[in-house]
Design a protein around this nucleic acid. Structure first.
Length: 751
DNA sequence: CAAACCTGTCATTCC
DNA sequence: TGGGAATGACAGGTT
């Protein structure tokens, strides 16, 4: 008992602390900025649930107060222990590895178009994007929460404009083109058919909804295994969809320290070096699949061939050549991919070649789009600098923009991921179903609201209202006689009005008993009238509006049967033995105060003593000639009765708070999973953007010619993007200086 | 029989 | 100031 209380108390305290910790450590807002207002609200909400007022608000506004978990079959589900274990599991760090492979299982079949919007907006160069930024755990969650992703992105105002739903004519054309190109590979048209896949998504979602709502997470492993095979849409080949990426991969992939300058690779930005080039087969397949999903396609043939065919030499890379051959809408992908923070990439454009001699005469060669037709063709409609650089960033923009790249990629992943991983583990552990996270949030609410839902049932409704209004019932009902209505906090939420009616009738029968006592105490006819008026007719009671809000257990001292028969004169037909037995039984049914009241010959029921409003109670006392002992007992009975109900309410409230907190925890977990998914997608998109920018850079640079018609040496010159949208060709040394300046600045800022 | 749980009661605080 | 709600703590009963 004591331990339980400690348990609850400690649990709540711990939970509060953990919530605050969540708010601090899981501050995704820092990198998603103002896009995520709900998180803070969610975080702040639960903590405020501890206040009484908040609690009442919760009870009044959320209709979640209804069911008493004890009352119905939700006991096991909504126990404080479960919540507390859940809470305590928050700080646990687990890295389940077996479910890693689920990452793309959902993604490919269902989310190809709508589910991967950010990716689709970023077009094809995702071969390196296969090295995803998430760790295994994230992959798991990602797969399980994939469905609601597009929705979530919309909520966040995410990177790419939503592709889903309405396809533009260009999109349809692209689909057609891709389909025609792919048809010889055995690709079905439906791969590109959004509506078709949407149906598939729906079906799939429905299936999984049903399955997952029933399934406990114990079966998740097998399920994950079952889903674990990716099926190639073209070949029908099944292969394990591993989620190979490591969190650190992206951070490793970003900087390139050892890139040898001079060759074609020299043009590659450091973003595309080292770790990204050795692709896993699975990664490439994943990319391929994602590519197939994308409708806004490729940028440039040569770029892609340079970027992807060259380093990998993988047979899969031939697939990538499909897209480049297509006439594409470059702008689509670029515009869709426009990300604010991409400017940082450019700081890395010219890091190598520090030792290279300064270029001769021309220090800055402004490359306006009009200067080159080829350049114009590729950049003409897409203002690269405008897209990727904030306007304030001109030639020195790299100073501020550049160094941010490692931070969001590395920092977020390294620091936040761990917390998130643990949280998501918790979510999975506790049966939280991230698959339906965002899309099925409502179902979840109703799910967790099973208790809430049942609050709409008559029984729980009465208890809900009773408890919520219990604080005001005394004042509101003080003007009336009544208060015999009881929804009873202790009647385990099942005390309906019938029970109240029973009380009312029992009161009526009490008056009979009372009449017997009249002689001794002095009968007041007014009181009899009063009692009958107040208690005789249950329907009368129900007509009194305030009675609907009275939540007290007016039968608190007696079982209804006891009330019914205790004060009744025993039926004359009963034998003496049974009478005695019944009396014993009733005696046992009566509470101590009942016994005391009876011993003291208190002329009215404990029910009245306890529940009458003060004025009426005092009036009642004044009508009787009561001894000091009787008065004292009556007041004690009243006090104890009030306190008993208060204790019941208090416990109920406490339990309710716990349940609300549990629900809040689930909500937080859900949001966290969603945010994590989004973060992963954002990072992936970011990387794809970098690749695209790099490819464009290569293309532009490769087409530049000096006065003699010779190409510029990448080791001596570098392109730089000005804030006004122009692209400048500057010597490497200059670019390196700027890059170094950028590297220094963030360090200073950190200090 | 012990532990967990439930319920009533008291003391206290606060409104 | 009194009434009462809220709640922690405790005790006794029940499972």
């Amino acid at each position: 008992m004591l331990s339980l209380k400690k348990y609850l108390t400690e649990g709540l305290l711990q939970f509060t602390i953990l919530l605050s910790l969540i708010g601090v450590r899981v501050d995704v807002d820092t990198y998603l900025t103002s896009q995520l207002p709900p998180l803070r609200e969610i975080i702040l909400g639960p903590s405020s649930a501890y206040t009484q007022t908040q609690f009442h608000n919760l009870r009044n506004t959320l209709d979640g107060y209804g069911i008493h978990p004890k009352s119905i079959d939700l006991d096991n589900y909504f126990t404080a222990r479960r919540l507390l274990s859940q809470v305590r599991a928050l700080d646990r760090f687990q890295v389940p590895t077996t479910e890693v492979n689920a990452w793309l299982v959902h993604r490919d079949p269902e989310g190809s178009v709508s589910g991967s919007q950010p990716s689709s907006g970023l077009t094809l160069e995702s071969s390196s994007g296969l090295q995803d930024v998430t760790g295994p755990d994230n992959g798991v969650r990602e797969s399980e929460t994939e469905q609601g992703f597009s929705e979530d992105l919309e909520d966040l105002g995410a990177v790419a404009p939503p592709v889903s739903g309405d396809l533009t004519k260009e999109d349809i054309d692209l689909i057609d083109i891709l389909w025609r190109q792919d048809i010889d590979l055995g690709a079905g048209r439906e791969i590109f058919d959004y509506s078709h896949r949407q149906k598939e998504q729906d079906v799939d979602k429905d299936l999984r909804d049903g399955a997952e709502q029933e399934d406990t997470w114990s079966g998740e492993g097998a399920e994950a295994l079952a889903r674990n095979l990716l099926v190639d849409g073209e070949t029908g080949e099944s292969f394990p969809a591993q989620f190979p990426a490591d969190i650190s991969s992206i951070t490793e992939a970003v900087p390139s320290e050892s890139e040898p300058p001079g060759l074609q690779n020299n043009l590659l930005s450091p973003l595309l070096t080292g770790t990204e080039s050795p692709f896993d087969l699975e990664q490439q397949w994943q990319d391929l699949m994602s590519i197939m999903e994308m409708q806004a396609m490729e940028v440039n043939t040569s770029t892609n061939e340079i970027l992807y065919n060259a380093p990998s030499g993988d047979p899969l890379s031939t697939n990538y050549s499909l897209a480049p051959n297509t006439p594409i809408n470059q702008n689509v992908s670029l515009h869709q991919a426009s990300l604010g923070g991409c400017s940082q990439d450019f700081s890395l454009f010219s890091p190598e070649a520090e030792s290279l001699p300064v270029a001769s005469g021309s220090t800055l060669l402004p490359l306006l789009p009009s200067n080159s037709t080829s350049l114009n063709s590729s950049f003409g409609s897409t203002n690269l600098a405008g897209l990727f650089f904030p306007p304030q960033l001109n030639g020195t923009a790299n100073d501020t923009a550049g160094p941010e790249l490692p931070d969001p990629l590395g920092g977020l992943l390294d620091e936040a991921m761990l917390d998130e991983i643990s949280l998501m583990d918790l979510a999975i552990e506790e049966g939280f179903n991230p698959v339906q996270a965002s899309q099925l949030e409502e179902e979840f609410d109703s799910d967790s609201g099973l208790s809430l839902d049942s609050s709409h049932s008559p029984s729980s409704l009465s208890s809900s209202e009773g408890s919520s209004s219990s604080s005001s019932s005394s004042s509101s009902s003080s003007s009336s006689s009544s208060s015999s209505s009881s929804s009873s906090a202790s009647s385990s939420a099942s005390s309906s009005f019938s029970e109240e009616g029973a009380v009312g009738y029992s009161s009526d029968s009490e008056t009979l008993d009372l009449e017997e006592a009249e002689g001794a105490v002095g009968y007041q006819p007014e009181y009899s009238k009063f009692c009958r008026m107040s208690y005789q007719d249950p329907s009368q009671l129900s007509c009194l509006p305030y009675l609907e809000h009275v939540g007290h257990n007016h039968t608190y001292n007696m079982a209804p049967s006891a009330l019914d028969s205790a004060d009744l004169p025993p039926p004359s037909g009963l034998k003496k033995g049974s009478k005695e037995k019944q009396a014993d039984f009733l005696d046992k049914q009566m509470s101590r105060d009942e016994h005391r009241a009876r011993a003291m010959k208190i002329p009215f029921t404990n029910d009245k003593i306890i529940n009458l409003p003060v004025e009426e109670f005092n009036e009642l006392l004044s009508k009787y000639q009561l001894s000091e002992a009787q008065l004292s007992l009556i007041r004690d009975i009243r006090r104890r009765g009030k306190n008993k109900m208060a204790a019941q309410n208090c416990r109920k409230r406490k339990l309710d708070t716990i349940l609300n907190l549990e629900r809040d925890v689930e909500d937080l977990q859900r949001d966290k999973a969603r945010l994590l998914r989004e973060k992963v997608e954002f990072l992936r998109s970011l990387r794809q953007m970098k690749q695209k920018v790099q490819s464009l850079y290569q293309e532009v640079f490769g087409r530049l010619r000096d006065e003699n018609g010779r190409p510029y040496s990448p080791s001596q010159y570098a392109l730089q993007y000005a804030g006004d949208g122009s692209v400048l060709l500057i010597p490497r040394t200059l670019a390196d200086q700027q890059a170094r300046r950028q590297e220094r600045k963030p360090k200073d800022r950190r200090k």
